[in-house]
Nucleic acid binder design. Structure first.
Lengths: 77, 77
DNA sequence: CGTGTAAGGAATTCTGACACG
DNA sequence: CGTGTAAGGAATTCTGACACG
């Protein structure tokens, strides 16, 4: 599902990560949540999956720059 | 999707209804959102569909009691 | 009956910064 | 670099009630 519907609290639960980590991945241009008129971030289930992959890659030793330049999927190589 | 992930603001957008209407359908036992530890309601995409159907039935003249007793789908008869 | 609204409080999220290493 | 945290403010949601019809 591509609809951006959940706020960061739910994403935290679904990914097991902290809000800090999730916001950081956005800062590094790896995910692009939408914003409510009030500025609250909204994520999609796809975003949740991407976030999990990002964290996985980081654990594997990659840096956010790598993930952005080459693309997440491509790093499976 | 059955996961209860969105708060009422998003449900309002997806259904076009007001928070008041959505909360009322819950009060009438037609939908059962989950709650965060803090008491905030969380809905699933299925809930969103159900809410639309409820509103549809109400427009058709049914009362919430009917919808609860007979079940939403059954009223298609 | 189903829905609107004003009211006050509480939960959630936001940003910018300092910290560590 | 990736993440933790305390800080203050702002957005969002919650409940109970009065209103209309």
């Amino acid at each position: 599902m591509e609809k951006k519907v959940m706020s960061i609290g739910i994403v935290r639960e679904l990914t097991g990560l902290t809000a800090r980590q999730i916001r950081y991945y956005e800062e590094r241009q790896l995910i692009f949540p939408q914003r409510t008129p009030g500025g609250v971030r909204k994520y999609s289930f796809s975003d949740v999956e991407t976030i999990k992959e990002i964290h996985q890659k980081l654990r594997d030793g990659f840096q956010t720059v790598e993930l952005r330049k080459r693309g997440l999927k491509a790093l499976g190589t």
